[in-house]
Simulated assay, not measured.
Amino acid sequence: MKTAHLLKTNNIVAGYDKKIIIDGINMTIPINKISVIIGANACGKSTLLKTLSRLIQPVSGEIVLGEKKLTDIPPKQLARVLGLLPQSPVAPEGITVADLVGRGRFPYQSFFKGLGKKDYEAVEEALEIMGITNLANHSVDQLSGGQRQRVWIAMALAQQTDILLLDEPTTFLDISYQVEILDLLTDLNRNRGTTIVMVLHDINLSARYADYLFALRKGKLIAEGTPSDIITEELIKQVFDLDCQVIRDPVSDSPFIVPKGRHHVSC
């Protein structure tokens, strides 16, 4: 199991072009667990994830990784501990699967050296974990959506970080691929102890796969805890403006949301 690094925020405020998107969030990411950030569209989920990864600098507040402020950690050192898979990444035209996954080894390379033995071993392991070893020499352009998403996750795995942030890793995938990807991430978490933080749209998949949930509304953290502890009809109404009934998932025994009627969901 990896060395555990605690990731937490202290009253962070962040946004774009002087517009505040997330406002005063305090959160501590559970170590070696799967956490999912939930909330309606445009409520700040992706902004929060980008701020956690240092793609966005907070207007105020601070993020702490281990015993250091995120701003005090050199980029390559940070990239060895914390990895980010953004929403809908774009691969260079014509690149092969193995070459794209190999780019996850950037934090370990010097300017004058290419991939070494440890790098190739890390790439091979990532391909094997994601079940795409047979696709190593294929062009990423030729793959299905589900296969491409496996490749992107493999690239993040090759980075061999303690913490992995994923922004909607199942978006635009059929339900079978969604479950497949989430099962693979669960195996990664259980087998390697990787701390995983995801943004997911599907509340029932979030409740099924998450050890811990963070619920946002209009840029504020309004609830956190295990799915069984916080998923209630009142919370779903507050977060998604949706009237529902909460029952137990017959397969996972996690909370399962059954909408009572059609609603326009907005943040």
Rank of each mutant, 00 (worst) to 15 (best):
K2A: 11
K2D: 08
H5K: 14
L7W: 11
K8N: 09
G15H: 04
D17K: 14
K18Q: 14
K19G: 07
G24N: 10
I25N: 05
N26M: 06
T28Y: 02
I31W: 01
I34S: 09
V36E: 10
G39L: 02
G39D: 00
A40R: 07
C43Q: 02
C43R: 00
G44M: 04
K45E: 01
S46R: 04
S53G: 12
I56W: 01
G61F: 05
I63R: 11
I63K: 10
L78I: 12
L78R: 15
A79I: 11
L82S: 08
L82Q: 09
L82T: 08
Q87C: 03
S88K: 15
P89M: 08
P92K: 07
E93D: 14
T96V: 04
V97R: 02
D99M: 05
L100Y: 07
V101K: 10
G102P: 05
G102S: 10
G104E: 09
Q109T: 06
G114F: 03
G114A: 06
K118S: 12
Y120E: 09
E121Q: 14
A122T: 05
A122I: 06
E124P: 00
A126R: 11
L127C: 06
L127N: 04
L127P: 06
L127V: 04
M130S: 07
I132N: 09
L135K: 14
A136S: 15
N137H: 13
S139D: 10
V140D: 06
V140G: 03
V140Q: 06
G145M: 03
G146N: 05
G146S: 07
G146Y: 07
Q147C: 06
Q149H: 10
R150E: 02
A154Q: 08
Q160H: 10
T161V: 02
I163P: 03
I163F: 03
D167T: 02
F172S: 13
I175W: 01
I175Y: 10
L184M: 14
L185M: 13
L185H: 07
T186P: 00
L188N: 00
N189I: 02
N189C: 09
N191W: 01
R192I: 00
G193T: 00
G193L: 01
T194C: 11
T195C: 03
V197M: 08
V199C: 07
V199A: 09
L200I: 04
H201Y: 05
I203L: 12
Y209N: 00
A210E: 03
A210C: 02
D211K: 02
Y212L: 03
L216P: 04
R217Q: 14
I222L: 11
A223T: 01
S228Y: 00
S228K: 14
D229H: 12
D229T: 12
D241H: 15
D241P: 05
D243V: 04
D249V: 09
D249L: 08
D249Q: 09
V251M: 13
I257T: 10
V258Y: 06
P259N: 07
P259F: 05
G261R: 13
C267R: 12
